[in-house]
Amino acid sequence: MSRPFLTGYCLLIYAFLLAPILVVVGASFNAGAFLTFPPQGLSFRWYITFFNNEVFMRAIRTSLWVAFVTMIISGVIGTMAALFHVLHARRSKDVVRIAMLAPLLLPEVLTAISLLFFVYAIGIGTQNMVGMIIGHVLITLPFVFINVSASLESFDPSWDMAARSLGAPKLVRFRRIMLPMIKSGVIGGCLFAFIISFDIFTISFMLKGVGTSTLPIQLFDYLRTNFTPEAAAVSTVSIVLTLTVVIISEKVLGLRIHRF
């Protein structure tokens, strides 16, 4: 394949990747009552409708809350697991890795169904957000694990030995040598867990209780029956929220998030 041809081909693919996202953003500024093309002028009316729609506002608050709690729990558990995996696991290394990545490799829909039955079987049910948050933690755990493991893999054991030879006890070594070195991995993993959790659909859909709809669920329900550009406004706000987190992490904190 020649260079110009390859470049042109790739540009087409990038356009394909961006198209549906751009269309949603574009549609959100449509002044008309329906999604029509060409748009009937530019307006923010659907944003105003959205911000006055208590159902959507509650969903967005729920989503932020769930994503925050998920991030904290996943961050702590995933970091600890990564520390074990890289620093202490010997023969169990592969097993630990596969187990930690399992939620990513298993079909989310099956995990969601299994978890739904299970929370009923053990009596947690879906009256509160516990079941849903457990599901979110399961799904986001691999991302924290991957990010922290990656930063730990580049941690040179001789740094720790050097600190020992200089007389540093275990806790001091963790705080002053290990933590600064893996900080970006931990923060990156946590932020990614937040973004993933914010967008999780299937798990939330199955495990949502009364009044605990997250934003994707509310949007999905809305789209089944409505076609106004309000959904586009909701989507655009959600995209901007995610983008803000990404930009903060990559530009301001200078992090490189490992997706795989």
């Binding site: 198209a19 999604l35 949007l219 959904a231 995209i239």
Partner: peptide
């Protein structure tokens, strides 16, 4: 980085 619901919604518009 964009939720699956939003992406699918984008395709329905298209």
């Amino acid at each position: 980085l964009v939720g699956i619901v939003i992406r699918s919604y984008g395709w329905t518009i298209l």
